[in-house]
Design a protein around this nucleic acid. Sequence first.
RNA 1: GCGGGUAUAGCUUAGUGGUAAAGCUCCAGCCUUCCAAGCUGGCUACGUGGGUUCGAUUCCCACUACCCGCUCCA
Length: 523
Amino acid sequence: MEKIVSLCKRKGFIFQSAEIYGGLNGCWDYGPLGAELKRNLKEYWWRKNVQEREDIVGLDGSILTHQEVLKASGHVGGFSDPMCDCLLSKARLRADQIEPQSGTVHWYSGASHEESGWSVEKNFAVLLQEGQDENKAKKTARQYYAQFLTDKQISPKKIELTADRTEEVTDSTDFNPENGSLLTEPRSFNLMFKTQMGASADENDPKATAYLRPETAQTIFVQFKNVLDSNRIKLPFGIAQIGKSFRNEINPRNFTFRSREFEQMEIEFFCSGEDGLRLTDEWLEERLKFYEEIGIPRDKLHILDVPDGERAHYSKKTYDIEYEFPFGIQELEGVAYRTDHDLKAHQDGHDDAKGSGKSMEYFDAEAKEKFIPHVVEPSAGCDRTVLALICEAYDEETITNDKGKEETRVVLRFAPRMAPTKVAILPLVKNKPELVAKAREVQSMLTPFMNVFYDETAAIGRRYRRQDEVGTPYCVTIDFETLGEEEGKEDLKDTVTLRERDSMKQERIAIADLRNFLLEKIH
RNA sequence: GCGGGUAUAGCUUAGUGGUAAAGCUCCAGCCUUCCAAGCUGGCUACGUGGGUUCGAUUCCCACUACCCGCUCCA
């Protein structure tokens, strides 16, 4: 993984955000090649899912989100569970799920070790249930204070405790039921980014509160009616969206995999309740096919059929599509059958939100019935897929050069349709003006159709390797045959050497055929 | 959030209580007729902030970021 992170920086795929200021936790910037790669992914997704389908339309919603939207969706309130940490075992517990306990609390104010002169002043407490020996409290407290010992050779048993007081409590949730250890104060984790609307808004004015959306999906649900009314479209149909979302991840990790700002590619495919389960399976297949097309083979993907109890309560079926990243098998996309939960919530609300009160019903003219549509949601992580593309493409090859010396060739084997640069145009040498001029000519011929890179510096072999390292699938070399000046090879006039990245094979191709050849490969 | 590790040039590393070395890359020039050739020259670094010290990149503390293992992930 470190090699990949290093290559990404070295070649301009991905940089740490605000690196010159020390970096911004969990944020990343795409450099020139990363930006091309990501565009290629998004454009291909959009083309396949929106432009080439009659039953899906696009949407590009605002990132700033009305607080009522996220109350109705359950993101405000419902998912900001207060958590406590056990001071002893460091286990994290949900405050609302701690079983209340009664008993005697033994408070301590610190501990010391006479021989070494070590001491610590920190409050700690242990809850003893009726019938438990006081020695248990002491043992637990010694274990707690032992973690502050500077000399790990000292046995916890030798620690002197400073007893403070005892206290009787009933139905307390301040202690870990597992070991009686004191817990930290409950802290709430609201994973959404909150902001104030209006330049002069008071920070404390609750009406000014807005959120950066934590998922693109809610925009789609909220605009469901408008899309339906403006597009002469019939169920089943989908609304697709690509866009940024934001979550205050507790622990961003694994390069760009878990970022606080990330891009999603989502479809909400609306249907009747009878079709939900079948469409979920169909979408799973559809999505697997997509990954194959962008160069992520089926055998590197794992399908997790999320079991009962682990799915969201409203979901009747959820598949996670996972990829074998170098740091583990991790989710790329979720395909979830969310029933009519979302539209219903935005229509009627629920216990903690009033909803919009606007009808989300669909009228089926044939069956002459009104109902709230169900929805199947294939939701893909764009940045995660980019990372998967890079991980999958990365390869090191040991090759023996002309001098019999072994060397390593680093090559990114991107599918041509994903590759940031499609073709490099290289004059064989740069000190022959005719070659350079011809190369420039070929470059301008191809530029309107694809991302072309021109390079005339250094030896030809080095230039090939540079292109390998950034995954350019084809190199075109303009040589003396191209000019028709080679004796006995006049028929090679206006042909070039086409060198393929993976095999390093070279073939002759007419300049006139170049465009169509390449377009077919990268489409 | 916890524990462990790391932080020196674009990259990979060396090194020192008296401001630092190398390889590769990159740039310029010369040369070069198909897989990282050669020659010459050049740019660029001790993560941030404190402390100790005459002096800190080096020792100490804090912070930040990244990596690994837990934890978490609507």
